[in-house]
């Protein structure tokens, strides 16, 4: 490992710990009345401001650290959500492919009928009579009793790979950044909704990589051996496949974390924030745009972003080179 990479990671970790302690101490950022209505670099108003103040007289150091911890928290939550979606669909498409899971025709019919039933219940919702609620179940029962033995013996395969691959293609050709702005604007979500929208729009690339890795690992002999021994699919996936692709997952996760952090910063720069508070690095940079002579508003967040992202991406690249 490179000397500079080590220093960078130490810097990142210490920044994280500092911001956590800062949140625990819950220091409130109060307006400095002596500096209200003016940008000021390193200054002493009512208190000392090492990083200076913004236009309203808020301490920039406080904004800097609490904004960092909020962005990291946001990025982590979105990362977890999108990773869950990506992992689930990637493994489904990769491991089960087009012939992994077979269903009895009867079960398939039951499933479809159940969905139709639920849709029908929504259809009659304006004035449901109690008796009518049982109608769908009666229909299903008649279907079951029609020709039970014949359907029991026939099977169909569910083409997970084909379905999920076309989902990748549809999601992949949607413009993420623009759609994201519009969705956040129109749905006016709370914090959790914001995280959900971002994770739904960003899982595709990760899932593609996971699918390719799973397909690569799946052909190994020990998987065949495990199958021959009668070990269940779920256990094979957890014990053997996920174990073998965890390094790749880690690398893509680090890249994704950096990108999400960046995305959060750029959305905040535009003026869209999920948390509801306008404390973030992107927000400080947006304030810099109003007065170009306030150099400290540019300097600290941009150096912070650079010094946070470079070690992160270098670490990912280092791990990538190590695994290959």
């Amino acid at each position: 490992m490179n000397r500079w990479l080590k220093y960078g990671l130490i810097w990142n970790i210490s920044l994280l710990i500092l911001s956590m302690l800062w949140q625990l101490a819950s220091i409130e950022n109060q307006i400095d009345n002596a500096l209200h209505g003016a940008y000021a670099p390193f200054s002493i108003g009512d208190r000392i401001h090492i990083f200076g103040t913004d236009y309203f007289g808020y301490d920039l150091l406080n904004h800097f650290i609490s904004g960092f911890s909020l962005s990291v928290f946001n990025a982590l939550v979105i990362l977890v959500f999108s990773s869950i979606i990506a992992l689930l669909l990637g493994v489904l498409a990769g491991y089960f492919a087009n012939d992994g899971i077979r269903l009895r025709i009867l079960s398939l019919f039951m499933l479809i009928l159940l969905l139709v039933d639920i849709a029908y219940l929504f259809f009659i919702v304006p004035s449901p009579d109690i008796l009518i609620l049982f109608l769908p179940f009666i229909i299903v029962l008649t279907f079951i009793s029609l020709d039970y033995r014949l359907w029991r013996t026939k099977y169909v395969f569910i083409p997970f790979d084909r379905i999920i691959s076309s989902l990748y293609e549809i999601m992949g050709s949607l413009p993420k950044f623009i759609l994201l702005i519009c969705l956040v604007l129109f749905l006016e979500p709370n914090w959790l909704g914001y995280a959900c929208i971002l994770s739904v729009l960003t899982w595709v690339q990760k899932s593609r990589i996971i699918r390719a890795e799973v397909i690569k690992v799946k052909t190994a002999y020990y998987i065949d051996a495990a199958k021959a021994l009668g070990i269940k699919d779920l256990w094979i996936i957890i014990r053997h496949i996920l174990n073998n692709i965890q390094e790749t997952i880690l690398v893509t996760r680090i890249y994704a974390f950096g990108n999400l952090f960046l995305l959060d910063a750029s959305l905040n720069f535009i003026g869209i924030s999920g948390v509801g508070s306008n404390v973030s690095w992107g927000n400080i940079l947006a304030q810099y745009r109003y007065d170009l002579s306030a150099w400290w508003l540019l300097l600290f967040p941009s150096i912070g972003l650079t010094l946070f992202l470079i070690p992160l991406f270098s670490l990912a690249k280092y791990l990538e080179n190590k695994t290959n």
């Binding site: 950096g258 750029s266 720069f269 810099y288 941009s302 972003l305 650079t306 992202l309 470079i310 992160l312």
Partner: peptide, 9 residues
């Protein structure tokens, strides 16, 4: 890894 809006600023 430095994003384009930092470069622009």
């Amino acid at each position: 890894s430095i994003p384009r809006f930092i470069w622009a600023l």
